[in-house]
């Protein structure tokens, strides 16, 4: 269902925001190859974010915004509730 897909992407967005800063390394000063470990994590995470954004752009772009399903993104759409889908679109922010 389109609505479940939207909730899934919103959750992915929240996870991307949450771990951009590695909170679990708080107070840690480990240095690897001249760079703090927490910075390596961040660099890797931003790379991951870019890959996730690419997946989103190629598979789900338009979700929560476009109200007439487009062919590329509507394979799973079995007539989801249009107004409910759009109303929930702001969650991702």
């Amino acid at each position: 269902m389109r609505r479940r897909e939207l909730a899934g992407w919103a959750a992915v967005g929240i996870v991307l925001c949450t771990f951009a800063i590695p909170w679990f390394l708080w107070g840690d000063g480990t240095v690897i190859a001249g760079i703090p470990l927490w910075l390596w994590w961040h660099i890797g995470w931003m790379g991951l974010a870019s890959v996730v954004f690419w997946l989103f752009a190629s598979r789900a772009w338009g979700i929560g915004i476009e109200t007439e399903p487009r062919s590329a993104s509507s394979r799973d759409d079995r007539g989801g509730d249009r107004s409910a889908t759009t109303a929930a679109g702001g969650d991702e922010a």
């Binding site: 967005g13 991307l16 925001c17 951009a20 800063i21 703090p36 927490w38 910075l39 961040h42 931003m46 974010a49 954004f53 989103f56 772009w61 338009g62 929560g64 915004i65 679109g89 702001g90 991702e92 922010a93």
Partner: peptide, 26 residues
Amino acid sequence: GPEWVLVMGLMDGIIFAILWYVIGYK
């Protein structure tokens, strides 16, 4: 200290990118 990289990365690299879609695309 260099933690500022993290703040800017989160703010511009991720939060703003998501808004790029949520606000920008609409």
